[in-house]
Design a protein around this nucleic acid. Sequence first.
DNA 1: CCGTATCCGCCTTGATACTG
DNA 2: CAGTATCAAGGCGGATACGG
Lengths: 125, 125
Amino acid sequence: MSGQITAYSDNPEVDRLVNELIGRVADKWTLLVIEALEEGGEQRFSALARAVPGISQKMLTQTLRQMERDGLVQRTVHPVVPPHVDYRLTDLGESLAAAFCGVWHWAEQNLQAVAAARAAYDARG
Amino acid sequence: MSGQITAYSDNPEVDRLVNELIGRVADKWTLLVIEALEEGGEQRFSALARAVPGISQKMLTQTLRQMERDGLVQRTVHPVVPPHVDYRLTDLGESLAAAFCGVWHWAEQNLQAVAAARAAYDARG
DNA sequence: CCGTATCCGCCTTGATACTG
DNA sequence: CAGTATCAAGGCGGATACGG
């Protein structure tokens, strides 16, 4: 195999599902939540809200629900008052974080290259 | 380096820029265009329109412009009538395609796991 | 053939207020 | 504390028509 870059499926239906899944999972907030959970480990709702600057309560709830449904995070409710809810990455979630590491690394490495390309493009008009 | 998962920058400003860049680049159409160019090599506008099913002319143009500005694709205009324009991935674009390969692979590998997680979640209500 | 321009519906998002 | 409900606003994306 020594799989080169083109490791994409040859099944159009699978391609469609994969694209759909990536679209769901590569969402801006999902990415940030994954990063927060990866860095901070298991933590509660309010901690996540602080760890992801700019996110609204609504979007955090929505994002966490989707991630839970997709099996990326585990939600644990401690039946106390006031309520205490913890979130942590599942193994599946961790594996996604690892997969995204490549993209993250690329972005870090090429921030300047992209900035330069934009400057050059804009300069030409 | 045998870099572990947490390779994220410790600089918040860089984090912000990286997130922004990923948000831009992880766009649904961008992903599909990258895949099409990766698989089909250099090709013209109309070929891409066929290679990316469901994309509108507007979105294809918009996506290609952004990718060009970000230095991901090179646009070559052949001054003939009728017009003939070719698009190809730059080295930067190829490197991004390679980086996304991990996510693509993850999605392929875990389609079923996600589907199962969803089914379980929905079953519980 | 390869775009740009315009209009328009819809879906996402944010702000705010309220509940267990 | 951890949500849900509601509403208004903005942007994304599609369809269409037209220009170089």
